[in-house]
């Protein structure tokens, strides 16, 4: 565990905490994409199947459980909570995510390190995570008044991805035989997806303006 990896994981954790707090405190999930949250739920379920097969560390297991539990909590709130579900932007959150899920799954069937159920599902989760934020970014574009917490949520998620790239560079330089090309390429794609958002986020922060993304 290096400092970049730890910082990346913490950003990921903070992003989820920010989202949980925002929804819970304001009793509103306005601007939050249920589709992205559901994609993350699929990502975490497929990736963390190894909770049942291998133990890496208490840290690893705890984080996996937190990510799973928090994502399902958010989905539950958005779908079923009697106050919160009313605030969901159903008409705006129209990204057809089956067009992300199917290609990612087919790609994982073809491009993987080992043709086993566990490994294909793990690879699928890597590909799907790279594009899972897209429904959220599209929804932000359609939202006129992006509240600070939603903006911060996406910014923290993007920071987590950027820090993971630094983690991979560090590991590549310090660990013999450490390489995972599929993860690296997907991770770079995933980070590129955020670049546009980062630009507008930092600009609005510097100019002390409310964040808005051009359509």
């Amino acid at each position: 565990m290096n400092i970049f990896r730890l910082a990346g994981d913490m950003m990921h954790l903070f992003s989820i905490i920010v989202l949980l707090l925002k929804i819970n405190a304001t009793r509103s999930c306005r601007g939050v994409s249920l589709k992205t949250q559901e994609l993350y739920a699929i990502v975490f379920v497929c990736r963390y199947l190894d909770l049942f097969t291998s133990f890496i560390s208490l840290y690893n297991t705890t984080m996996k459980l937190i990510f799973l539990l928090s994502t399902f909590t958010i989905i539950y709130w958005m779908r079923f909570h009697k106050v919160i579900r009313v605030t969901y932007d159903r008409e705006q959150d129209t990204f057809r995510y089956q067009f992300l899920i199917l290609p990612c799954f087919l790609l994982a069937l073809v491009l993987n390190n080992e043709f086993s159920a566990m490994e294909v599902l793990w690879t699928f989760s890597i590909y799907l995570e790279a594009v899972a934020i897209l429904p959220q970014l599209v929804l932000l574009q359609r939202t006129n008044n992006i509240d600070n917490l939603t903006g911060n949520y996406v910014f923290l998620l993007g920071s987590y991805r950027a820090l993971y790239i630094l983690n991979w560079i560090y590991r590549f330089m310090t660990e013999p035989n450490y390489r995972q090309y599929l993860v690296w390429i997907s991770g770079i794609v995933q980070t590129i997806v955020y670049i546009d958002f980062f630009y507008y986020y930092i600009r609005s922060w510097r100019n002390n303006e409310k964040l808005s993304l051009p359509a």
């Binding site: 990921h12 990736r47 690893n60 390190n113 080992e114 793990w122 993860v183």
Partner: peptide, 10 residues
């Protein structure tokens, strides 16, 4: 054969 890769990242 099976590599049984252990994925240690989240």
């Amino acid at each position: 054969g099976s590599t049984g890769a252990v994925h240690d990242e989240l």
